[in-house]
Nucleic acid binder design. Sequence first.
DNA 1: TATTAGCACTCTCTCTTAATGAGTGCTAAC
DNA 2: GTTAGCACTCATTAAGAGAGAGTGCTAATA
Lengths: 347, 347
Amino acid sequence: MLTNRQLLILQVTVDDFIETAQPVGSRQISKKEGVTYSPATIRNDMADLEDMGFLEKTHTSSGRVPSEKGYRYYVDNMLTPQRIPNVELQQIRSVFEERMLETEQVIRKSAKILSELTNYTSILLGLDVRKHRIKRFSIVPLTDDSAVAIIVTDSGHVENRVFSIPENFTSSDIEKMVNMLNDKLVGVHLHELSSKLELVTKTILQQRIGHLENLFGSFNKAISIEHGHEDKVYYGGKMHLLNQPEFNDVAKARSIMYWMDHVNQIPGIFPLDKMGIQIRIGSENNHLAMENCSVITATYSIGEEQTGSIAIIGPTRMDYKRVVSLLDIMSGDLSKELSKLLHGHYE
Amino acid sequence: MLTNRQLLILQVTVDDFIETAQPVGSRQISKKEGVTYSPATIRNDMADLEDMGFLEKTHTSSGRVPSEKGYRYYVDNMLTPQRIPNVELQQIRSVFEERMLETEQVIRKSAKILSELTNYTSILLGLDVRKHRIKRFSIVPLTDDSAVAIIVTDSGHVENRVFSIPENFTSSDIEKMVNMLNDKLVGVHLHELSSKLELVTKTILQQRIGHLENLFGSFNKAISIEHGHEDKVYYGGKMHLLNQPEFNDVAKARSIMYWMDHVNQIPGIFPLDKMGIQIRIGSENNHLAMENCSVITATYSIGEEQTGSIAIIGPTRMDYKRVVSLLDIMSGDLSKELSKLLHGHYE
DNA sequence: TATTAGCACTCTCTCTTAATGAGTGCTAAC
DNA sequence: GTTAGCACTCATTAAGAGAGAGTGCTAATA
């Protein structure tokens, strides 16, 4: 168990290191406001904190630096939410002020402002399109043997794919198909589309219109290709990370950039199932490149099904207080605004 | 005028520096295959080449490094096209082998393979959507006061925008509008859409259906927003540049990354008007961040109007021979493949 | 008993110095 | 015209010295 003084010293050490990026010495702490102990006393406590694994030394006679365990303790127990100045609240609200009509725009702009306010890198995961419901099908022929299929969802999102038309199909066949699609499949989730489509195809076989089978097959092939289906990822301030002193090494910078570019392919980065704010410190990210990084994620949601995710990536030495507060505000606002956008009212 | 020996020495110097990234000394050159002169002789010629501005020294007693003028001369006069090994040709061709139906896919994959083959960064500028012709309009209502407008072009590209529906318009009004749009505006170029639309709106006023004016206005506002209209840019191997020894400095790396992210907003980077291969060396790029970079661009085209652009960004010390050959092959193949895709046949 | 002052010790950082070696420029010989 | 020889320059590396920041331990103090 930590004494009060040890708690104070741990907190001051972490705060100071977050601010200066330099190892913190006992003398430096003793001069802080609110600290009344002499350097020697502080040294004793710091040695204890080191024994307990909360602090580390970079070398024998250096000041202390928080360990991962130290950050973890700090984050779990000492994170008093920070008041965000009005000017900045204003900035966030301004994202939603001008009336934008498309979710993509809103998300993109949110990513930008978040990275600007934090000076770290922001990653926003768009709403999972697969959970949107189909509103309308439409097919536009392009050449003799190809056409573009268009699927509009209830969120206003538009998916489109070119597919090839087998020989001997006329435009009236295609019209028939579109009608059937709109008849049978409006309202289903995008991710169910492929399986439901097969059901429909089976029904076709049982009816007179069995010759449409090929057409449906080609269509199904086109929409099953995953290429556009993966979740959309929006970045803000990718370069901000390079400003941090811990990434002055090009090799490190490169591996982090690489990690970021593939973040949506790594499972478990965005915990969409857990609501609220999650903090992952250093090695908790389970990736070598992220050793010196922390990731803070928050979720936003519309209704009960649709959830998206916001993340901020910074050095482990990042300003947790501030980032958590900002993410909290942002995710709330985003939920509200998108609900309004998609359902025409606040939920 | 340069003597033959000077030409030889310049060429060997540039080639060697491209390969090793180290200043080239006279002794090193004398040991090269095809060089029969002693280091002293070579030193004399190198001094002359330096006087003429083709070579530079990094310090008094260092070997020589090509100057921008040296690279320029090399590129203009000594660039014998390199034979690309069959294995690599095969790799390029493989992009087009599996039958892909969408231009975006083809371009994306081309960018990837190009960066892999060169180990530099590739940038592909997609076809200018604004030159595509409109094939079909369609409007899908979302909520009471919003709808998504969809425009399909002859290339299979789909543009979509959400727009708000003023009060008191019924779905039959919208149907009327769609019919009129399809009636009057199919076949026009996307970039003419806005101006032609105004003409149509004027005609409306002169007819009974004047009450549709507001609806057209709202629609026009939505499609005039430029946000999706800017040319699409596809990157390949963004991180490759960081592997080059000249960018070991994080500050340099950052400014180049920044430049790349904004490259489509800088006019004149992609000379779409000039066909063929263009090489811009160092300061010829007119940007401080690109001092140490060269950009090689090639154009590809479909028919006579539609042109896109391919670029490779590398250090000034890049392997010009190889890159030029690769770009030449790639741009040709891309033109062929996309023509087939969009017009159903080779041009 | 908890806190603090004092002091020796450790380790990094920076600056200096010296040695090494790659490469040049010049001059004289071939 | 070409080359060998040699003095000279400058980057790079290693080693050493001094300064400074910070620690750990012990003994004194409240």
